[in-house]
Design a protein around this nucleic acid. Structure first.
Length: 733
DNA sequence: GGGGAATAGG
């Protein structure tokens, strides 16, 4: 960036004639075109005009290209007027400009008009057809091209590749070799990309030998594409070997190797490369920022984005969308809105990547309707925009809107289906999860890892073992049985359904286990009463892996100790939490310990703990304490605790529910009714309850809020009768 | 004047 301003100063300075001035002007104009520096380009134009050389043939062509690229039609018209010979070069410029604007038909008209054409005219049109997917027309032209050279071959090879015709492009490459045309560095770049996309390791290696034979092993671009090839095929050693023996490296080489460390899961090393890179451009910044976001380090991503702005690097659309994603993860609406405003200002509001990130941001921050506003302004919506808005609606419980959108999508992607599935899952509407899943299978869409994990999660929550087993079967059919996400979901599903044997079986067979997998198994064992095994597994995890215990694992451990009467062991782990594991116990951990102490009769200690808590105790903690008091006859503490619960009940709906449950368990039905009535009067609502039954492998769910009209009356009638019977029974006893 | 390599949303 700095160099262009210096060069501009030279032009402005009185030294107007030096050797190579024309060449300098041309490269400056090229620079302005490539970097979209329109104002600077115009300044240069004015100076060249004043110097009387703006109509110099080579300069005029560059000016024409620049204005064509900036779509400045009046300037283009003026130049064409000045440039009185409307020759082949001008024609070629106009053809390639039209190709860039996706006006290939206009380009064809110009091509047909030409009295004389050269290799450039042909190649421009051949690649023009390929760019808009009109392969047949392009190939027809390619076969008729009288000026076939390495460039037109390369154009066809890479064009076929970008149309997804990988095999055809490689066949064309072989044909080219048979024709006796030698590939150059650009050809190799395209061919290596074809091998990458086909994941053809052997073929790629033989291409490498050809690269060496023809002396391109020192070419930076070729090496860069070979690094990417190695990375995509998981050959990390090969990638770093190529990088190490490169005599010359550029930003792209460095960015590619940075990505290698990220792929290997070593973000710290990636950051080291990033910090040590001799040169960074917006793509390098963007790579680092987007990877931080993807791996869940949203705060680091935002921090890097801030530094980038401070360093006056212009963020590109990838960067902006990653930054917005990071903000969405952190639910930071206000800064997100600032970027939204900025994006609108610089004219990127229409970018599909940025727009879908914005939709996601508004959805994550609870404003799906603002996401809708963004959605409506996007001109070229793609399926991701649709899916993101669906997720935004459904994760905020607006299922009708989500469904309406979903039905409007003409060509649904796997993501569209998954958005619906995840939406219902998040809102605990498990029957809908199965409904969508069945529709999906009927439509012919194959589920992916995400779908199966979600559906298994629904099975786990419904403890529907039969359905879970069906899905387990499907994972084998689809070849996902070794996937870590699917495996973890299966472990969780079997554990939650009480089938601990199968849970263990799946866990032991898993080839890759992550933190979540271990958590699911440890938790599963603890909650199914296998406290000792759970503790053993925990110790095994600490010994054999480098996974650090998380909040949930420790909760499971405390739970296990509590239910097994291992009070001292439980207290031991509780004390290790902050000192060794560096995890601050939350209210749920405290509840567990309070419960543990109360159950074992150490009621006074339990009360002391609850009172010393740095966070607000859960109602459950008080309830555990109260039941401990009852068991061990600690009337004095019981009285205090009951008063506290009564007090809490005044503030929270959960308190009343708890209170009524406490009364219910004591058989005080009149008190229960009184509490319920009190809740109603105070406008407190119990959070939506849900129940279900499984009849002939079909799930039927009932929601508390679902019941309406006659159904509700019917249910209420039954309830009233039940209540009456209970009262009568109680009074008689 | 024509061909290409690194980053990117659900």
């Amino acid at each position: 960036m700095g160099s262009i301003y210096k060069s501009l100063l030279i032009i402005k300075s009185p030294i107007k004639s030096f050797i190579g001035f024309t060449e300098s002007s041309i490269s400056l104009l090229k620079h302005c075109t490539n970097h979209r520096l329109i104002t600077q380009g115009q300044v240069i134009h004015t100076h060249l005009y004043k110097l009387g050389i703006s109509s110099h043939r080579h300069i005029a062509v560059k000016l024409l290209i620049m204005y064509l690229d900036f779509k400045k039609s009046s300037e283009v018209d003026q130049l064409l007027k000045d440039y009185n010979t409307f020759d082949m070069i001008v024609h070629n410029c106009l053809i390639s400009a039209n190709v860039n604007w996706a006006n290939v038909d206009e380009a064809r008209k110009l091509f047909d008009e030409m009295p004389q054409r050269n290799e450039v005219s042909w190649t421009a049109l051949i690649s023009g057809y390929l760019k808009c997917g009109r392969v047949d027309e392009s190939m027809e032209l390619f076969r008729r091209n009288p000026f076939q050279n390495v460039i037109s071959w390369t154009a066809a090879i890479s064009g076929l590749l970008s149309n997804g015709m990988r095999l055809e492009s490689l066949e064309l490459f072989l044909e080219m070799l048979r024709d006796g045309v030698w590939p150059n560095n650009v050809t190799f770049v395209s061919v290596v990309r074809a091998c990458t996309e086909m994941e053809e390791l052997a073929l790629g290696v033989s291409v490498v030998s050809l690269v060496v034979k023809l002396g391109f092993e020192e070419d930076v671009s070729v090496c860069n594409s070979l690094i990417t090839f190695s990375l995509r095929l998981g050959e990390m050693d090969m990638a770093s070997a190529i990088f190490k023996r490169m005599g010359k490296r550029d930003v792209i080489s460095w960015t590619a190797i940075l990505d290698m460390y990220v792929e290997m899961g070593d973000l710290r090393e990636a950051r080291k490369v990033f910090d040590e890179m001799p040169e960074r451009n917006e793509v390098s910044w963007s790579a680092m920022i987007s990877r931080y976001t993807q791996k869940g380090y949203s705060k680091d991503a935002i921090e890097l984005f801030r530094q980038m702005i401070e360093n006056r690097i212009n963020p590109n659309s990838s960067c902006l969308s990653s930054a917005i994603n990071a903000l969405a993860n952190l639910k930071l609406l206000q800064p997100g809105k600032t970027i939204h405003a900025h994006v609108t200002k610089i004219g990127l509001a229409n970018d599909v990547f940025i727009s879908s990130s914005l939709i996601d941001l508004y959805g994550s921050c609870g404003s799906p309707n603002d996401g809708r506003l963004v959605f409506d302004t996007v001109q070229n919506k793609n399926v991701v925009c649709w899916n993101t808005l669906i997720s935004a609606y459904s994760s905020n419980g607006q299922h009708e809107e989500a469904k309406k959108l979903f039905d409007q999508i003409a060509v649904k992607s796997i993501g569209s289906w998954n958005s619906m599935v995840t939406g219902y899952l998040e809102n605990e509407q498990y029957d809908k999860v199965f409904e969508v899943f069945n529709d999906m299978l009927l439509s012919g869409q194959t589920p992916d890892i995400s779908t199966l994990s979600s559906v298994l999660c629904a099975c786990a929550n419904l403890t529907s073992l039969q359905k879970g087993k069906d899905i387990h079967g499907k994972t084998f059919k689809l070849g996902f049985q070794h996937n870590v996400f699917v495996g973890t979901s299966l472990v969780d599903m079997y554990a939650k359904s009480g089938d601990i044997e199968n849970s263990k079986r799946v866990f032991n067979k898993m080839t890759e286990k992550n933190e979540v997998s271990w958590t699911a198994m440890i938790q599963g064992l603890a909650e199914n009463g296998y406290a000792e095994e759970s503790l053993e597994l925990f110790q095994q995890m600490e010994k054999t892996t480098c996974i650090k215990p998380n909040e949930l694992i420790l909760l499971a451990i405390l739970f296990a100790c509590s239910h097994c009467g291992l009070v001292d062991k439980g207290l031991h782990y509780f004390n290790l939490m902050e000192t060794v594991y560096k995890i601050k116990p939350n209210e749920r951990h405290y509840t567990c310990v309070v419960d543990m102490l109360s159950r074992s009769g150490r009621v006074r200690e339990a009360e002391d703990l609850i009172k010393s808590m740095p966070c607000e105790p859960e109602v459950n903690a008080w309830a555990a304490l109260l039941s401990g008091c009852k068991t061990y006859g600690e009337d004095e503490i019981a009285e205090r605790t009951a008063a506290t619960i009564q007090e809490l009940a005044e503030q929270k709906s959960g308190g009343y529910v708890l209170l009524s449950n406490v009364y219910a368990s004591a058989g005080k039905w009149r008190e229960v009714l009184k509490t319920r009535k009190l809740m109603k009067e105070r406008g407190l609502k119990k959070s939506g309850g849900c129940s279900w039954i499984e009849v002939r492998n079909e799930l039927h769910l009932f929601y508390a809020q679902d019941a309406s009209g006659n159904e509700l009356n019917e249910i209420c009638g039954v309830l009233e009768q039940l209540k009456y019977h209970m009262l009568v029974l109680y009074e008689h006893n």
